[in-house]
Amino acid sequence: MLSQRTIESFVGLFLLAAMMALMVLAFKVSGLTSFFKPKSYTVIAMFDEIGQLKVRSPVKMGGVLIGEVSSITLDPQSFKAIVKMDIDHRFNEIPDDSSANILTAGLLGDNYIALTPMYSQTFLKSGSTIEDTHSAMILEKMIGQLIYKLGGGSSSKASTTTSNTSNASDSNKIDDSNHNVDTQKRIQK
């Protein structure tokens, strides 16, 4: 039988280990930073469309993390999304005519804001607004536009085969439209 003191020291170590593990879970795994916010200043940008941007999405410049999105609201008058971002105070010389893009990390990744620096000699400071913004690309809209364009292109061709009502004509149409997609792709390249 261990003495009470030994038992208590073991339990104390156990508690310490668990607390350290909780710290790791909080800060390393879930990235909980709201307790110890690094010094930062807030910049506002208005976007027409923010896609899947969320609070705590990263803000990057040249691919390097410089801050995060702190709040997203909708302006009730202009119906634009107001995105506030906290930028690390070390990067306090960002030109105020820089542009903000909402990009996607990889094909399936999350959205993030990419700032592109310009050449102004005045710098962004707390509360200033980025005027030059580019909305998020919405994949569905792009596909929709593509299909719309393809549909407009192939309808004239399809009209030449409308007199044919057999199944073969249908497959011809499909072939035609496939062909169109190919040419479209080639043109885009």
């Binding site: 909080a26 795994v29 879930s30 990235g31 705590r56 990263p58 999350d110």
Partner: peptide, 15 residues
């Protein structure tokens, strides 16, 4: 590895 983890794990909802 860590940064992707931090963006998708929420302290309250998950941990």
């Amino acid at each position: 590895f860590w940064s992707n983890m931090q963006t998708s794990v929420d302290f309250h909802l998950d941990v």
